[in-house]
Computed example of a mutant assay.
Amino acid sequence: MTNVSDSKVFENVRPRLMGLAYRMLGSMADAEDAVQDTFVKWQASDKASVLNAEAFLTTVCTNCCLDVLKSAHKKRVDYVGPWIPEPLQIGTETDPESDLTRAESLTTAFLLLLERLSPKERAAYLLREVFGKPYGEVAETLGISETACRQLVSRAGRHVRSPASRFVPPPDDQERMLTAFLAAVESGSVEDLGGLLADSVQFQADGGGKATAIGRVLEGPEMVGKYVARILGRLWAESRLEPGNHLQVMDINGLRGFALFNGTRAVTVLTLGYSEDGRIDRIYIVRNPEKLQRLAAPLRHDPASGAIWH
């Protein structure tokens, strides 16, 4: 291959590598680093010995992500308050209902489910169930037997199919619930919120020690409803009145959510997760400024391939 064709091959695969790395790591900055490391290793590789460029690049990227996850463990232990994946303004190229597995695999709820898995379980599950790679190829990527690979995917699947929300309602239902939720927050009405929340509802906020946020996960409609209506509602009203602040509804990780901006800088992002009966069972707020730097730049997602690109 020439240098030009080498680069072209990599650029053709880059969006899928980015989709894999972001799902693996929950951080766009870390995903970009992993993909860049993959490119460096691709440039240094013996192209004549590479039979399948995409499989080779996927293997290299996966191993880069596994290395990052090893070093990330201590950071997560020392993290201040609940950790939530970096939110991205990202929509799908097609109707999410046309490929629910991959559409769901970008939601905040699903990315948090992946946190329950070991790094190799996470990689095996994503490569097989989200990116559709054959078991043999996944096993080769991870350097394990096909039998062991099947066991990893099966074990990961049992965790991922837990009661925690992965449901993606139709866009119109998302819009309706988001509007009703915002109205209830602004009214400060616990009663209005009560009809929107599932019995399994949880609330968590990520300030990372760099912005004000509640430091524990709240559970149950009574506790969540009171906090959202009485405390979040007051804080939200105060924030809306600050000079330069404005609210913007957008697609965040494939679901409708909204962000509070100060000028062009995002300061707070809220997304929801849903139970299968369409009620709200997850409320996520991200205020850590390090996780909001990319929110203003829209990304695209192709559910058929899992690719993410600008």
Score class of each variant (00 low, 15 high):
Arg116Ala: 11
Gln43Gly: 06
Gly257Ile: 01
Glu186His: 01
Arg122Ile: 00
Glu86Ser: 04
Phe261Lys: 09
Ser145Phe: 05
Thr58Phe: 12
Glu186Asn: 09
Phe203Lys: 06
Gly194Ala: 14
Asp281Gly: 08
Ile283Gln: 07
Arg216Val: 06
Arg16Cys: 11
Ser118Cys: 06
Pro221Thr: 03
Pro169Asp: 04
Lys210Phe: 07
Thr264Glu: 15
Ala48Ile: 05
Glu129Trp: 04
Gly233Ser: 04
Asn3Leu: 13
Asp99Ala: 10
Leu111Pro: 02
Tyr227Cys: 10
Glu104Cys: 07
Leu299Thr: 00
Ala164Tyr: 02
Thr101Leu: 14
Ala55Thr: 04
Gly278Lys: 08
Met223Gln: 14
Thr141Asn: 07
Asp172Met: 05
Trp83Ser: 11
Tyr135Ser: 13
Ala139Gln: 08
Ser5Glu: 12
Pro221Leu: 05
Glu140Tyr: 06
Val50Lys: 06
Met24Ala: 04
His246Ile: 01
Leu100Ser: 12
Asn12Ala: 13
Leu100Asn: 07
Leu292Tyr: 01
Leu17Ser: 09
Glu54Thr: 01
Leu126Lys: 02
Leu100Arg: 12
Glu238Gly: 08
Val267Gln: 14
Val40Trp: 08
Ser305Tyr: 01
Trp309Ile: 00
Glu32Asp: 13
Gln151Val: 01
Thr101Gln: 14
Gly244Glu: 09
Ser154Pro: 00
Gly306Asn: 08
Val60Lys: 07
Ser49Ala: 15
Ala21Asn: 08
Gly278Leu: 09
Leu260Ala: 02
Gln248Arg: 14
Leu126Ala: 06
Val60Gln: 10
Ala123Thr: 00
Asp33Leu: 03
Arg176Trp: 05
Gly215Gln: 05
Gly81His: 09
Val168Ala: 00
Pro15Gly: 10
Gln293Thr: 08
Ala237Asn: 11
Leu299Lys: 10
Gly143Trp: 04
Leu20Met: 13
Pro170Ser: 11
Asp46Gln: 07
Tyr125Trp: 15
Leu255Asp: 02
Asp173Phe: 05
Arg102Asp: 01
Leu51Thr: 03
Val4Cys: 06
Ser71Asn: 08
Ala304Thr: 02
Asn253Glu: 13
Arg76Val: 03
Ala123Asp: 04
Ala211Lys: 02
Glu32Ser: 10
Gly273Tyr: 02
Thr179Ser: 15
Pro303Arg: 00
Pro134His: 14
Val77Trp: 14
Val130Met: 14
Tyr125Arg: 06
Ile144Trp: 04
His310Asp: 11
Ala297Pro: 00
Asp172Gly: 00
Met177Lys: 12
Ser187Tyr: 05
Ser5Arg: 10
Lys75Met: 14
Asp251Ser: 10
Ala55Phe: 07
Gly26Ala: 15
Leu69Val: 01
Ala164Asp: 11
Ile280Gly: 10
Gly273Ala: 09
Ser162Trp: 02
Pro96Ile: 01
Pro289Asp: 12
